[in-house]
Simulated assay, not measured.
Amino acid sequence: MGWRTDLGVRLAGAIVACLAWASLAFAADLTSAPPADSSANEFPQAAPYITLFQEVRVGAYAHNPNHDESAPVDVSFETLSSNLPFANFSNPYVNWFLSPRIGLGAMVNTGGKTSYAFGTFNWRIPIWKMLFFEGELGGAVNNSPDWQGPQRIDMGCPLTFREAGGFGLQLTQNWDVVATVSHASHASFCTSKNPGDTDFGVVVGYKF
């Protein structure tokens, strides 16, 4: 039970730090940016060009609790592009589906265990006022060993799929926070070994 207690303490500290950072930034932004309004319920409009650094994010995750590697905390870093400008249909839902953002980032284990870099497509679905749902789908490359041992997992192959989903709050035009779960695995395409890496956490994003 010791590692679980340590997991709770370390993850709670990391999440509190992220939320505190977002709260301070949110308070600072109130003097320079209008609060979130009904526009948060609208699908984003793609610009005529793409920038890969429209938004940057950092996060703290519980590392793969269903496969203990005795390294319970991951830190994530991610950059998101502007919406892809390739859709031009009268139906806004079709345009939304064909205009995801590109996400590039890394999930880094603080104990030196399994980490991975990833590239994904990111879709955001407005729900109500500040609330939204977000999903990601793409691929990842990991550094797991090719053997199964104590406190290590064999992911089966270095290349995997990567999916993520969660609910978020658009705090201001610049800041958002998302409670999310991410999963990386090869869906048994490589070998019969497919333990997967499932992480639960909170990310804070800043949009330029």
Rank of each mutant, 00 (worst) to 15 (best):
H186P: 02
D197S: 08
T198G: 00
L104E: 05
T180F: 03
E134H: 02
R57V: 04
Y206F: 15
P195W: 14
E78A: 02
S188K: 15
H67L: 03
Y49Q: 09
Y61G: 00
T114V: 14
S81C: 05
A14Y: 03
A71P: 02
G13N: 12
Q173V: 05
G111S: 09
G112Q: 09
S185A: 13
P195G: 00
S182G: 14
A33K: 12
D6A: 14
Q148Y: 10
T172V: 05
C18H: 14
F133S: 10
S185L: 10
D68P: 03
M1D: 12
A60L: 03
V16N: 04
F118L: 15
L171D: 02
A117T: 13
G135W: 06
N64W: 15
W175L: 13
G119E: 12
L131Q: 02
H67R: 05
T198F: 12
A71I: 02
E69R: 01
F97N: 00
L169F: 11
A36M: 08
G205F: 00
F189V: 14
P85E: 11
I125G: 01
G165H: 09
F86G: 00
G112P: 01
P85A: 11
T31A: 13
A164I: 01
S188F: 09
A27I: 08
L171C: 03
I50T: 09
H183N: 06
F208H: 07
W147G: 07
F77A: 06
G168L: 00
W128V: 11
T191H: 09
D199E: 09
G8Y: 12
A20G: 15
W21S: 05
G2V: 06
V141A: 12
G165R: 03
I15F: 07
V56T: 12
A12E: 14
D74Y: 04
D176K: 09
A40Y: 13
M155W: 04
D197Q: 13
P48V: 10
N66M: 14
I153Y: 07
I15S: 01
T180D: 07
T191W: 00
G156K: 04
L19I: 08
D29Q: 07
E134I: 01
R124D: 12
Q45T: 13
G138A: 10
N174T: 10
I153A: 02
A33R: 13
L30W: 07
A179N: 07
E42K: 01
G156W: 00
